[in-house]
Design a protein around this nucleic acid. Sequence first.
DNA 1: CACGTCTTCCTTTTT
DNA 2: GGAAGACGTG
Length: 714
Amino acid sequence: MEWLKELNQQQLEAVLSTEGPLLVLAGAGSGKTRVITYRIAYILNMGLAKPGNILAITFTNKAADEMKERIKKLVGIESFSEMWISTFHSACARILRMEAHSIGFSNNFVIFDMQDRHQLLKECFEKLNIDQDRLELRYVSRQISNFKNMLISPSDTHKMGDVDPRIVEIYRLYNKLLKEYNALDFDDLIYHTITLFRTNPDILERYQQKFKYILVDEYQDTNDAQFKLIYLLAQKHRNICVVGDDDQSIYSFRGANVRNILEFENVFSDAKVIKLERNYRSTKTILSVANEVIKNNTSRKEKKLWTENNEGEKIYLYTAFDEIDEANFVSMSIKNLIQSGVKPSEIGILYRTNAQSLNFENALSSHAIPYKVVGSLRFFERKEIKDIIAYLRLVTNPHDNLSLFRIINVPKRGIGPGTVEKIKVLSDEYGISAYSLLKERGAMEFDRRTYLKLNEFIFLLEDIRAEADSKSVVEVIKLVLDKTKYMETLLSSKNEEDFQRVKNLEQLISAAAVFEEENEDKSLQNFLNSITLSFEEDEAQKEDRVLLMTIHAAKGLEFDVVFLTGLEEGLFPLLRAEDINGMKEELEEERRLCYVAITRAKKFLVLTYANNRRVFGRFSSRQRSCFLDEIPANYIQQVYTPLRKINFSDMSFNENQQSVTKDSLAVGDIIQHNRFGIGKVLSLSEDLNEVLIEFENYGQKRLLLSYANLRKIG
DNA sequence: CACGTCTTCCTTTTT
DNA sequence: GGAAGACGTG
């Protein structure tokens, strides 16, 4: 295990301490992912456990995939499907698929996303005759989610003090409907898994036995339910390793509880604690700025990140006239940076809210800079995609009323709101699903003309279902598009938008094709499962483009250059007048968010804010963010024009302790590259600046040694 | 019942 | 400035 030499003292200790509870406090850029992957590789290589005995929880599916790739490289084993590397939600879905009957669901349950949840809540409001002003709906939705994240059932809500009885009523009905539709929402996945374990000790025992080693990444962002789950599972072997950084806890709105990390040592009294405080990512300046900002928070574990990296440049600050000026400054600076040799994909534009992306998109495209927006309008949330998915869901489960009502008149087939309302009322009355009602009682309850239309619809669904059995996912989708005339309707439209929709649907088909290639379980069921739980973008990720995203989405990523934008009071920190009570805590979370943003930067950090900004289309004047005042002036270089070209190669430093330098590399060496993986050195240029490498998976590449950040592995 | 225009409300952040 | 719902007309 040569690769163990790549680790520093603390990292190594974290890898080798395989037995018993372990808390790794890993500061930003301190190599925490490396610790987790190497730890798993070590456990496997030492024969301490089989792949099937390992449960590794990551925060996103993307992170899970990356982790699998890295471990694969270290260990080179094949039995990966046996190793559970996934998010909490995916892991729970996987368990529940097998055990659903034990909690009163059938194993072909569907997973409701946030849109679905809102839709269903709306139904609840209607059924209970509760005035649904929109604000209330969002509030109720959040409440219910909080309850589930704290493992509080409808009948337990009184424990939370004064809860609006209407909310309890809605909560109860909402759960009841979910069950009728055989559906689970995101929070249910965790909640029900815990219920399953609590009510079926034998099942719990089985999983406890199975998971000899449990690892949790981004532990600071776990909520009460997730903690409970881990706690239950780890009881048997107690080999539980959690990795996190309380300073990067940014998901309390989702129920994340920082106390989980702060109190780990109390819950597991024999826990070992290892701190990783050496940062390998950023310049000294950037790290100092991050430290200066975060030290204003009161409730945190004391720690001091340090680095051996260069001092680096001062950070830049630009004050824009308005948000358009801001976007232009950023775009023109990026143009110059790219001309200086910075790769577009090494540049990130970060902002607090998704709504801010638009100006940057406009400015970037007018400067012909390649970019990609991460997140925002997610593919699987588009109308046309959700429509088709609704059909697919009905194929697996005809009693999913929500999906049925979504597409009962899509494309238009003459079934209007009046008829839909009648179906709802009647199916309620008879206590059966809308589908059953139409099938069994349609002829009696509706007049002839309506009945014919309804019958045609039911027939369509059954027709699709009958054929779907013997078909692959791709074929089923095509079948739906064809039989429903969905595609036909779009194609005959002269609307520009509809043309885009056709392209999106084509993408859905290719996404399904990729799914079939990559998954062992190729069932429609599993397809539906995977698309609600992950928003895996298509392969465009590898392309060399500037990335735009929210700070939340940037967690775990790093860039040579980061533009942190919109640093204005009210926007970042984003605080609302309503919650004066939670003010301090909320501000601290915003500050952590700021800390996360700053520590994404490796070499350059550029901060911007605008004196004026159009909010909801209204022009309003702005004040600079309080976070800016927390940065000592000597770190800041105020600029008034876009950044000029720079000598970028001067900026490089060794980010990894084992990075190769000119003298240490020879022809024939085996190296590892962050992006391209493992390769062999074919030749070196005379001045030793350039190197030609044959990569296992990417073929030959000519790289500049000063950027390439190669690690020698043999 | 479909389609077009008018109004309202809006914005956190995501699995 | 834009989406989603309300309202009114063909």
